[in-house]
């Protein structure tokens, strides 16, 4: 166990990268996913189809493929971004599809009468979406979005495959020296569990606080 304490520095740094990936891609995917949902329920057919296509594409392509594609194919097309930003962008685009699905499940809980009332008050469609539909959908979707955020946190481990030094990558490296895979990966697993627990508890508290009483 001593070596775990001795490696605390690099592990903490790698954990920081994992958290950076999760938080940046988390915020990005919630914003983007919400916009996609808005497009998906808009009256503009082109937007609706584009949003539908977006979700279908990202739900049906493995994240690892997207990461490898972004890291190794985009430079050939002339875009060479550093690895961590690339991973954040790919995670954001990928998880946004799942956030969009979660938010869309919340849209069904918005009262039809309330939408009618907002129209009767003179709200434009955009205002109805912004003031009524999206806030209520997000509130109803807090738990599903929390689950997407947990999945996102686990998915950050795939960034190790394309060179980002995050928690899993650091665990690999440590194990190469120490040859204690069970101990090292159990420790890494416990850290991921703690992150998932923190997200789950936060989602639970938010839901309790923001729940809509009808």
């Amino acid at each position: 166990m001593d070596f775990l304490a001795a490696s605390a520095g690099p592990i903490a740094e790698a954990l920081g990268t994992t958290i950076l990936l999760a938080v940046a891609a988390g915020i990005g995917s919630i914003v983007l996913g919400t916009l996609i949902t808005a497009a998906r329920i808009s009256p503009v057919p082109v937007l609706r189809w584009a949003a539908f296509g977006y979700v279908q594409f990202f739900v049906n392509v493995p994240l690892l493929v997207l990461l490898v594609l972004a890291v190794f194919a985009l430079p050939d097309a002339g875009f060479l971004l550093p690895l961590t930003p690339t991973a954040i962008i790919v995670l954001t685009l990928y998880e946004a599809a799942y956030v969009a699905e979660a938010v869309r499940s919340g849209v069904n809980t918005v009262g039809k009468g309330e939408i009618e009332a907002s129209r009767a008050l003179g709200f434009t469609l955009g205002q109805t979406l912004r003031v009524l539909v999206i806030p209520q959908s997000l509130r109803a979707a807090i738990q599903p979005i929390g689950n997407v955020m947990i999945a996102l946190t686990m998915n950050t481990a795939l960034a190790a495959a394309v060179g980002v030094v995050e928690l899993t990558s650091a665990a690999n490296k440590l194990n190469l020296v120490e040859a204690q895979p069970i101990l090292i990966f159990t420790a890494a697993g416990l850290i991921y569990m703690a992150l998932a627990l923190a997200i789950g508890l936060t989602a639970g508290r938010l839901e309790k606080k923001l729940r809509i009483r009808r």
Partner: peptide, 20 residues
């Protein structure tokens, strides 16, 4: 149409207040 609706108030059978 939105501008016109703003000048016509409406009250519904089921209240339809914004629950959030």
């Amino acid at each position: 149409l939105a501008d016109l609706r703003a000048e016509v108030g409406m009250v519904f059978q089921s209240f339809n207040l914004f629950a959030h």
